[in-house]
Nucleic acid binder design. Structure first.
Length: 357
DNA sequence: TGTCCACGTCT
DNA sequence: AAGACGTGGAC
């Protein structure tokens, strides 16, 4: 889009000045994270991609140990492509949004097998790959390939919603914020990646959601929200809805070797493709049928609680048994101490309660 | 405590 | 196009 004037509040000339101040601030204050390489070196697209997928909806601090581990185990995209999916899921366990791990693996296979191991170098082509959408395609294009992409994540939105005192509520304001962001990125060329990272570091450390540290902000002079002393009024959000309560039972079934029965979950839906324990479905009623090859024994008087994005879960621990000679598709016996770190958090909590009881 | 972050991608 | 999809830490 051509941008001559994006706001009646700030001129194009002023925008250039403010973004200069932001880039200067970034030179001094950038966060040191393992995927940021020293100035002058060429970034490895595989590392940039891996870090950006992990950082979706996830704080940098949570990402760092996972990022390091993944690169240790799978240093090249070809290594990740050749991995077994269950190994990728096991390494991702605890990081959440498991569709990211399934798509990560698929994407690695496309790049390794169909694209000669090279990530595409334009935003448009990147966006065609599994797990790469508007934000991530822009981020990789800018950071790994020096493209002038308009990188807009939640941090950029918060900074700009405040800078321009955008009264329109999210998610509708997304279009407006993208235009405002384009005003900042316009004409930057290969510096776009630096501006993106500057915005994100500013959003993470200074223009934080609550109690923003405006005294430390390099562009506070131009911030409309600050002029109004209404920083935390922006970005304006739509009303949020209540989280429903759901219930389920999780079954602890031992064999003669003292191993527990585990379950590889279906590829689709909640915790798709992840390791789990045998369980009922999770619903709004307390009584839900167990898988029919399981003989329910007795409640263990233990309950695990877990919060998902869209519901709260109460998981009752129940002892059970099966005919050891008949274990159906997707179920297998294993040492719980070998598997606990491969479980998503809801099951890990339940297993921990069981092992400590 | 409970609320928020957290647009990010896919369907 | 609105809802599904995790987690942990800050306050």
């Amino acid at each position: 889009m051509t941008v001559t004037q994006v706001s009646d509040k700030v001129s194009v000339k002023d925008i250039e000045e403010y973004r200069g101040q932001l880039l200067d601030w970034y030179d001094q204050h950038e966060r040191h994270v393992p995927w940021r390489i020293p100035a002058g070196e060429t970034p490895d697209p595989y590392s940039v991609w891996l870090s950006e997928i992990m950082c979706q909806q996830t704080t940098v601090q949570a990402v760092i140990p996972y990022y390091t581990k993944f690169l240790e185990i799978w240093p090249k995209v070809e290594d990740l492509a050749a991995a077994k999916q269950e190994d990728v899921m096991a390494q991702w366990a605890g990081l959440g949004y498991y569709a990211r791990a399934r798509n990560l693996h698929k994407c690695a296979q496309v790049v390794a097998n169909d694209l000669d191991g090279q990530f595409p170098d334009t935003q448009e082509q990147l966006k065609e790959l599994p797990g790469i959408g508007d934000y991530t395609s822009a981020a990789i294009a800018a950071i790994a390939f020096g493209r002038e992409a308009v990188v807009v994540d939640g941090n950029v939105e918060r900074v700009l919603a405040r800078f321009y005192a955008v009264e329109e509520a999210l998610p509708k304001a997304k279009t407006t914020l993208k235009v405002l962001a384009a005003g900042f990125y316009n004409g930057l060329g290969a510096e776009a990646g630096h501006l993106a990272q500057a915005f994100m570091d500013l959003g993470a450390n200074v223009c934080i959601p609550k109690a923003p540290r405006c005294m430390l902000c390099p562009i506070s002079d131009g911030c409309e929200a600050r002029k109004l002393n209404r920083q935390t009024d922006f970005p304006v959000k739509g009303a949020k809805k209540a989280r429903p309560q759901r219930y389920g039972q999780v079954f602890f079934i031992k064999n003669s070797k003292g191993e527990l029965l585990f379950h590889r979950r279906d590829e689709k839906g909640l915790l798709g493709g992840m390791l789990g324990l045998p369980s009922t479905d999770w619903g709004t009623k307390k009584q839900i049928a167990a898988p029919d090859f399981i003989d329910v024994d007795k409640p263990l008087k233990l309950k695990a609680h877990h919060v998902f994005t869209h519901f709260d879960l109460e998981l009752e621990l129940v002892g059970a048994s099966v005919d050891e000679s008949y274990v159906t598709e997707g179920y297998f016996w294993s040492d719980p101490y070998n598997e606990q770190d491969n479980l998503p958090t809801a099951f890990k909590k339940a297993l921990k309660l069981y092992l400590n009881s």
